[in-house]
């Protein structure tokens, strides 16, 4: 059982280089020797100029991009640690269900599925009964100012801001111990930004470790415990 303050995420010597075979094998190194530790209850914000590799790092932490070298150690609630970079596909899938929550910038819209079910789905995947998951989903959606009349509709016709709030409800609803947030407030107004700040603080309070990219200075200042700088690598020779 890990206590608050124990590390949740430990990145060691992480390398990521893209090889573009369609451009004659052009190699683009983005991360080299990246190291980062995040504790339970802590929110680390990735900072750096555009194109420096913040999103790339986040996607490596989500298992969306593969690591070329190094380790990404993820610690579960029972204290056991797994190296995400070396884990097989099914292991990564399991970690995503139970440990790592990823809120991307844009909602991936599945046609014909009501917003409520999209939000409830990660909870159901973690074993919550569908009815209970739907109720929790509805509460979360109300917090993010998504009125009841939208819950039963597929989000394809929602505005960008509404879609993003569905995405946020989905991401925060399941209570993952490690939360990765990529520009969570990009299309939100001040009121909803405040809700997101609350959600992040509640997550920290329950012991979640958070890694985020925020361009909005106000939100960043409200939630960050520290900044982690990422500088662009010098161009490959």
């Amino acid at each position: 059982m890990s206590a608050a303050g124990d590390w949740r995420l430990r990145v060691e010597a992480l390398d990521k280089t893209f090889t573009l075979h369609l451009q004659g094998g052009l190699r683009i190194p983005v991360l080299r020797g990246e190291a980062l530790t995040v504790r339970a209850g802590e929110c680390v914000v990735l900072a750096g100029p555009s194109g420096a590799g913040k999103s790339t790092l986040l996607r490596c932490l989500a298992g969306n991009y593969g690591a070329c070298g190094g380790r990404i150690l993820v610690r579960e609630e029972d204290g056991s640690a797994t190296d995400l970079a070396a884990a097989g596909a099914r292991e990564v899938a399991r970690l995503r269900r139970h440990v790592i929550g990823y809120v991307s910038q844009f909602l991936r819209v599945i046609p014909r599925v009501p917003a409520l079910d999209i939000v409830a789905e990660p909870m159901v995947a973690r074993g919550v009964a569908r009815d209970a998951a739907r109720e929790a989903a509805a509460r979360m959606m109300h917090r993010l100012n998504l009125p009841g009349r939208l819950h039963g509709l597929p989000p394809a016709t929602f505005s960008g801001g509404e879609q993003q709030r569905v995405n946020l409800a989905r991401g925060f609803g399941a209570g993952h111990p490690l939360l990765l947030l990529d520009e969570p407030t990009a299309s939100l107004d001040a009121g909803n930004r405040a809700v997101v700040i609350e959600l992040i603080q509640e997550a920290k309070a329950r012991g979640a470790a958070i890694v985020g990219i925020f361009h909005d200075a106000e939100v960043r200042d409200a939630v960050a415990d520290r900044l982690h700088d990422i500088s662009p690598l010098p161009d490959a020779a």
Binding site: H21, G63, G66, A89
Partner: peptide, 15 residues
């Protein structure tokens, strides 16, 4: 190539 769908499609390795 094989692996998680989003990984293979977002970060394809093989030419």
């Amino acid at each position: 190539e094989q692996g998680l769908t989003d990984r293979v499609l977002d970060d394809p390795q093989h030419p």
